[in-house]
Design a binder for these strands. Sequence first.
DNA 1: TGGTAGCACTCTTGGCAAGGGACTGCTACC
DNA 2: GGTAGCAGTCCCTTGCCAAGAGTGCTACCA
Lengths: 348, 348
Amino acid sequence: MKTGGPLDERKAYILATVVYEYIATAEPVGSQTLTEKYDLGVSSATVRSEMAGLEAGGYLVQPHTSAGRIPSDIGYRTYVDQLMKPEQLGEGDRRRIREELHDASRELDEIIEHTTRLLGRLSNNLAFVTKPQADAHVFKHVQLIWLTPRTGVAIVVTSFGVAAQSLFELGTDVTLDELTRFSNALNARLAGRLLRDVPDAEVAAVAAEAGMGDDLRGAVANALRNARSNEQPGVAASGTQNLLDQPEFHDVRKLRSILRIVEEQKTLYDLVADTMDAETPSVKIGRELGNDELADLSVVTVPYRVGPNAIGMLSILGPRRMPYGRLLALAAGTADTLSERLSDVEIK
Amino acid sequence: MKTGGPLDERKAYILATVVYEYIATAEPVGSQTLTEKYDLGVSSATVRSEMAGLEAGGYLVQPHTSAGRIPSDIGYRTYVDQLMKPEQLGEGDRRRIREELHDASRELDEIIEHTTRLLGRLSNNLAFVTKPQADAHVFKHVQLIWLTPRTGVAIVVTSFGVAAQSLFELGTDVTLDELTRFSNALNARLAGRLLRDVPDAEVAAVAAEAGMGDDLRGAVANALRNARSNEQPGVAASGTQNLLDQPEFHDVRKLRSILRIVEEQKTLYDLVADTMDAETPSVKIGRELGNDELADLSVVTVPYRVGPNAIGMLSILGPRRMPYGRLLALAAGTADTLSERLSDVEIK
DNA sequence: TGGTAGCACTCTTGGCAAGGGACTGCTACC
DNA sequence: GGTAGCAGTCCCTTGCCAAGAGTGCTACCA
């Protein structure tokens, strides 16, 4: 299967129409259906020979000899990159998203969860949103709370509220005054800086200067590391049941893989981890997801921001046969609103 | 369908065998299978007439005329309450659960999540665990953290670590000293008491005495309310994909209801909310769940404790045709270990 | 030479009938 | 009261056939 040269205009139009029709109906598209439903200006016989060409070029495949054609990964890819026209979100949808999100809580996690549910509902697919990469947040405060002479809690607060906590248990007694002094030492040095600009070594150094013991230092370092959470942020997901409507999932085996993936946040995150850096909308189609079990799924992903920095991603997972244009517009619109909302709740 | 008088010994044994066999095979059980596989000491003809009696009594039903029989809700109920012998968890399983849970983190939420995943894996069904009812926890500390003159965070710490937080935004400026003074006033009065013994009114009174403004008072009250979370605790769930193995779920419509219920924590919680008070293991079978969509599912539920108080529940949701004895033993064993673990991490 | 009409062919799908298998309920007998 | 045997019911599988959808190829036309 060679990818063929560039498509001439008529081939391109026919490919676009096949993809469009297949997305709408979930049925393999034949030459006759095509000439009947769309005004191609040529007969079905001509369409047949063009389709044979598209199949030879790797854009279409035929499930069996006497069936119509469906797009291949390459066919969808060409459609998304070159053929489809970008869609805009209607003003109604846009307003509805804004209203829903602005009613929500001020807590970061709840905002993310709420956004995820909203996106799942509006997209009629499975939505998932990565929690913010906090390392671009501003460090506000660390508080060491004394509970008993040997236990306490270390709390890290950023410009988005409480970012992490860590219970600690010490080998030797510590007083309330000591904890207060430690907290002050850390705050004096760290307040106002970006989390990512605070290396572990510096925390250790400040702690050592202030005379903090090892276990206490460990607890603070631990809380800060959790706050940064830059290896692998949590992921919120919503809308699995929407996928059941799609005919492609009436096969139970496919559902297995999806359910497993949704339950294990890590796999879900891995699906989009590499698009995090790109900072632009991205579409992954079928085998491009790098997982054979997901070969007939696609994902669209759009980053959301605070200020200029992309700090997380909104994604929609659905059948390969998904309305790419609409979902991209929806994700982008939601990402915009989420970004605004996050700027609102950020403590300046 | 009358529920018939008490079952004589032979009827009871036959009912038990039918339930047992159907749980194992998922196929309607006929008189011949039964006499062949189990030593009943009578012929299949006799069994047939006994089964006819059991059907008349409402214990068994026949999917169609020429099929074997399957248990009704009443049949399962009788089996669970009177016929099955209680199982014990093997020492191997027990040790494995203990090892897994004792390696886990000290953070309450993570312990619960970890337990849920473990239970999902071991039960091969859908496990869900309600997060602790915190109102039986001991109030340890409230901390008001100053971020800017008009913003801050209120944090409530109980004997299980940080229980809740609430960002606040004020109409007038407040100083760090004032916040410290407020914190101290609250702590002096509340520390060491059970959360449920601290009425909202008292918090308001202390706050007013200390001269706190309304918004600040609101934030503290809010954080305390969240900490108590006694209306409806969160629920962790794991193992949805296990259900796909069961033949009863090859019908996609049934999956829909389940997926929806799992995603909405509230419905999941409602399934077992009324057994919270009972403080003993409980089994709900089919329509007893009070939801037609779940008519061929069952749930076993076991409470877990800290000290003498039940503070949450472990549940396993699966097909009505589930191995009740084994799952009850598994849930009970896991609940014991979870209770121990929680006592360990509690700050005394 | 590109487009078209027609035709033979392929493959799936649904309906239908027949046969086998797994039960049951009933009756007559021990 | 228990049992053996039998007629009857119902489901499920299998095989077959016809209908339908779609294709590729070829001959023809402008």
